[in-house]
Design a protein around this nucleic acid. Sequence first.
DNA 1: AATGAATGAGAGTTCATTCAT
DNA 2: TATGAATGAACTCTCATTCAT
Lengths: 201, 201, 201, 201
Amino acid sequence: MAPESNNNRYQQQRQQAIRSAAAVFAEKGFHGASTKDIAERMGIKQGSLYYYFKSKEEALGEVCHYGIEVYVDRMQSIADSDQPFESKLMATVTSHLTSYRERNEALKVHNDERLYLPEDKRATLKKLGSNYRQQLEHIFEEGVASGVLRESLDCHFAAQAVIGMCNGWGDIIQLDIYDIIQKCTDLLLNGFRERRKETRQ
Amino acid sequence: MAPESNNNRYQQQRQQAIRSAAAVFAEKGFHGASTKDIAERMGIKQGSLYYYFKSKEEALGEVCHYGIEVYVDRMQSIADSDQPFESKLMATVTSHLTSYRERNEALKVHNDERLYLPEDKRATLKKLGSNYRQQLEHIFEEGVASGVLRESLDCHFAAQAVIGMCNGWGDIIQLDIYDIIQKCTDLLLNGFRERRKETRQ
Amino acid sequence: MAPESNNNRYQQQRQQAIRSAAAVFAEKGFHGASTKDIAERMGIKQGSLYYYFKSKEEALGEVCHYGIEVYVDRMQSIADSDQPFESKLMATVTSHLTSYRERNEALKVHNDERLYLPEDKRATLKKLGSNYRQQLEHIFEEGVASGVLRESLDCHFAAQAVIGMCNGWGDIIQLDIYDIIQKCTDLLLNGFRERRKETRQ
Amino acid sequence: MAPESNNNRYQQQRQQAIRSAAAVFAEKGFHGASTKDIAERMGIKQGSLYYYFKSKEEALGEVCHYGIEVYVDRMQSIADSDQPFESKLMATVTSHLTSYRERNEALKVHNDERLYLPEDKRATLKKLGSNYRQQLEHIFEEGVASGVLRESLDCHFAAQAVIGMCNGWGDIIQLDIYDIIQKCTDLLLNGFRERRKETRQ
DNA sequence: AATGAATGAGAGTTCATTCAT
DNA sequence: TATGAATGAACTCTCATTCAT
């Protein structure tokens, strides 16, 4: 039934389906959303959805994957680049915040609803996610090594804090994103305290 | 049928019901949880729940309210106190993180599931939440006024960032909470950057 | 939900449900019958059926069990009795044919639809069924030992043949059952019996 | 669209389709089997089945017909032959049991699933079936007339008994079929035969 | 001659809710 | 105060069937 090939029409429609599911799951949550909602948003009938997914759960899986993949890929290329620490940090924040904007729905679904996935799918996603956190940790370690960051920094904590803070802006999309990026980066580097003597750099 | 207020036994049982609902909603989400689940956790039968709530939605409302109320109250008393800024900040972080731990379930429900509430209930909760953020903003404003924080600080941003970062630790109950409090406060005040010349404290 | 106890009303209704399911499964087959059919025959609404069964499959299991239990019990008591072989044979045929009449529907369901049961339930029923066949075989062995039947008789074959022949009358309930019993017994007896000079009776 | 008859390739494919349907219906029952199952077994896609059948029900009709036709034809030629009674009986048992083996699936479907056919199709099949029974009855009548069987024999009963007994062996394909034929015939013969002084064989 | 895509009806199942007791 | 019983609406999912290509 479900063609494996590069059948173009099918793949396009399936992508459509994933985006529709993302939107609906983001709005109502996995259990709150019905397959009818998804199909309607896509402009097909409920039963037809099953031509593209073999279950609602599969749809959730696809959405989550779709939501996190770019997000992770970008971090990879940031980590691989050889900018100085400050640039990498800002690039990370930017990536995180703009990914959120572009694929907002799918990423939100990944963050909030992935727990309804079966164990094995969740494990796959988890690997992607840890990957992300580790890369970020590594960036911090480099920052410490290069002397930009304090010796005593708990890099694991730092990575988690960045992620948390960025996720906190998820809903508030209507703000000036570049302003927030700026301010976040500044906060992470310098904190809020009044700077004494001369300032850095 | 539903006794008016100060029948004591009734109020106790109702409180029980709210806590059970909190636990179940936190674990499975609002739509993923059934009234039977809630009743069972409470040790009564499904139908009997309706003696305490007139609908599942009402239960959600109560849980959310219960989840946020102490949280807000504490912020109030922190704001009203006259400690220096640094203390207030740490108190806030502490409050946020320990509220999360104590009423973890209800607070989690508030954060993740309140969107399923009808408009009016949601508005009430939102007011409480904004209240919280405003108080926090005000604390930052005092910090600026007292010279501890930089003149240029965007206090709205700052408040939001604190909330986001703290919320990011929600699931990670098994960590040393006082360590995290310490590190969060430090991050907010000083950032991660290597400190030059002399540091304060 | 489903009370275990000797709650009388519940048990009665459940029995009703089993009988309704038997009738409907017998008429339309397991897959051809719908839970709505069953509920309607019982005079309740479809959803209410699930108060008595947790799945359609469970209903099938109960019907099959109900169908075969008396059938097997009777064979037990025939085997345990100490009538001569001829009487036991006739009693068996009588039991088989009248069980079929009384619980016709449930027994038919057992014979035709039990393959849709999950492995474990089917195993339980199979044990009951083999039990039946073995008892019957044993009766034939006694017949041989007592000299009533020919030495060379394949008792396993004989038992199977009796069962097959009796089952063949399942649909044709409107006949004179005692006539058929008579004729079956006669057919079987004179086929298996050691041939003497002149015949008895 | 559907080509009229003697297009050869079409007829071959259609025959294929019938056999596939037989196999699938036999395994899962009419309602338990899907058109997709049938198509898959045939190596075509679901929708293409409708080039050969205009409905699933038509497929069932064809299978049932296919299942019973040889079965009946053989009985015809046995009845028409002029062997002695004993030979005809054994031929009948042999035919019944081996038809079952050869066309096992289609015949099984005829026996178990024909009830899902619409009234008129079922009537057609019933006529074929009665035909069979009547021919068999007639053979018994000849047996009585020729003095091989007892005067008092109920030939209708006898025919039914033979059919029942033979059908009882339907599932048990793995046995030595010639042994069963032998034993069945012996059982039947010596049961029905007029009892003489000495026995034959 | 065959297929991919879609459909609509109906299936089994769950569940919030009601209510007499 | 609590429950057993029932309900009806909604849900996920399956499937026979159609039809343009």
